[in-house]
Design a protein around this nucleic acid. Structure first.
Lengths: 200, 200, 200, 200
DNA sequence: CGGTAAGCGAGACGGTACGTCTTGTCTTATT
DNA sequence: AATAAGACAAGACGTACCGTCTCGCTTACCG
């Protein structure tokens, strides 16, 4: 029994080139910002031909998305304390931690591309947002299972939370720090807010 | 003594050109979306020289912003029923109503420009978002005054709500319709969600 | 009465750019040969944008043709001695004189482009060859008028002579010097060749 | 004593691949002309790897030259009627016959490559033109032997005739048909032309 | 019969030129 | 002075072909 994993024909893809491209993308994003982040520059920096770049990534956004995904693999842990608010707080603090300046710049570039082109928006949604949403959904799902929140509220909460995050990110309406993480955890999980009042 | 309001020398600015530019911007946004919305196209469509365009608006974003401001000032009415959820529901339904396809495409263009350039983001925030946030803030303020919610929750709610709106708008994560308006009103104002549970 | 010659609207074409392009073309042809003669290089050398290059010349061949035409307009004098052979000899010697290395390289580039693309070939024929052929035709026409040669022979001679010239140029089959000029003049005008023999 | 013809080690060259390449070259030349005749396309068409192509032919010109040689070796017969003009006419008519569209396109490709690169020009001259020139030289040599023309005129005539042929071929200055063949035979061998006149 | 030395297909690679596009500046004559 | 027209420099875009390379597979022969 041979492994059914039969190698494809031809010269195998160069892992070196792939790494160089993703590293160059992150480096350029860090040093130049989204403005200086173009395919020409990535290719030059990575010592890779544009041919190779376009062979594996159809657009700049695809490159950025993959670079982001790779770096995001320092997975934001999914806490499970039995308390929605504590879980949410920890999750959002970890999310905030992962948003170093380079990542933030990349997210800006991604948002710009998505806003400008619906096809890109869908790509971003389906190849990047979806994983984060799934993680948060899992966390909220536990609260639903406990009966702490309804499932429809959980579904909405994902949009409220990530919406708030991107909103602040794009328009610089407020900081994304531990304070924000705790406020959102509190506001969504709800010891504060309307509920006390409603009771009365 | 001359009148202090001394007319500037030379040919006065052409109101015709200004109107044509703003109209062309709206028309292009509607017909082509953010992709086809470039200075060249605006000038061509408006029968205006690029020179004139750049004389009066330093960038595409300024044009878009001004076009938006002109059309967007149909102020959304602030309902006052005594119930936060009802007020919020009515306000968000009105907001949804104002989001016709043309406006949505313009908002895409604005978001794209803001995401790509922090200075633009601040401009958008301070010249466009601020009035919307103030309106919602006023609505929420009444609930704070009634003691229905805390003021810090009100502040957060603004970000959650508008964040959710832009998030759906940019990434096409879900619809922006009456259903959404009611869900958000419910989720934020809170008969549903964690509160029942907290009570128990 | 104003001159009916009304200037076209807009910024006039930059003579500086035109000159720079044609000069750069000649310089590159001289220094690099047909291989290094590409649009990118011409634009770089002339400090002109590719946009400008492509605005005024649709292809490399058009640039080369115009550069050639400019330099080639030192019209080769049409001698008129009453003797076809003398006229032809003088004309071909002058033609040989005009074929300095730069011109020769340009002619190579033109021939390459013409051979590769029939449309280019026709362009070259109608915009460049035609004037040369006309000149030679005029010279031969005088011999026809004198009754020295038939007009059909004159027509053929044009092809034979210029054909021989390009043939040697392209395939380096033999030199293009005064010796060649005299041989061809002799061979075509004919004191040598079949005629003596035919007499006998 | 071993046979000096010792088979080389390893897998022998695939005759199938060689044939496929040459056939593909001819087919592409016929269907696409010199423009679509590139190594990538030849390899694709022949179901042969570019590696194989470059192993056996160092350049496109070598492939084309070999393809031409294969098909062109239907040696044009050398007539011997005792009359230069008749011989020439027959030879040129046969030459014209051999210039079917495919061959013509190949010749265009060869001319383009030769014009663009002197090394290629020499290769073409020494590997392709030379045999044609030799044939025509032999034909003219008989006329020289008969004393009909001088040997220097014969040498020139080769250039005049083939020059005229390539000139018409490359620049489409006139047809290459029996009419042309007869005119050239007449013009070179010379019952017409200057000679009658010279007599008088 | 198993080892060794090519040839071969597939196809990725770095490189370079292409021709198009958009941005923002400039130079005219006209209003 | 503002305008319409439009040329200009700059530079990224995505495509195409070049000639080289790296694989695994396929012939041959040779010991």
């Amino acid at each position: 029994m041979q492994p059914p994993e039969t190698r494809p024909l031809g010269r195998p893809r160069s892992e070196r080139a792939r790494r160089a491209v993703l590293d160059a993308t992150l480096a350029l994003a860090e040093e130049e910002g989204p403005a200086g982040l173009n395919m020409e520059a990535i290719a030059r920096r990575a010592n890779v031909s544009k041919e190779t770049l376009y062979r594996w990534w159809r657009s700049k956004t695809e490159v950025v998305l993959e670079a982001l995904a790779e770096r995001g693999q320092r997975t934001i842990p999914l806490p499970d304390t039995g308390s929605l608010q504590d879980d949410l707080g920890a999750f959002l603090r970890a999310t905030v931690d992962s948003a170093d300046p380079t990542t933030v710049r990349l997210l800006h570039a991604v948002a710009a591309a998505a806003a400008a082109d619906e096809a890109v928006a869908h790509e971003v949604r389906d190849r990047f947002l979806v994983t984060r949403r799934a993680a948060l959904g899992q966390l909220l799902g536990r609260a639903v299972a406990r009966g702490d929140i309804t499932s429809s509220y959980a579904a909405l909460a994902i949009d409220l939370i990530y919406g708030c995050l991107w909103y602040r990110l794009i328009f610089d309406v407020g900081p994304l720090d531990y304070g924000w993480a705790d406020e959102v955890a509190d506001g969504i999980a709800g010891t504060q807010g309307p509920r006390d009042v409603t009771v009365g």
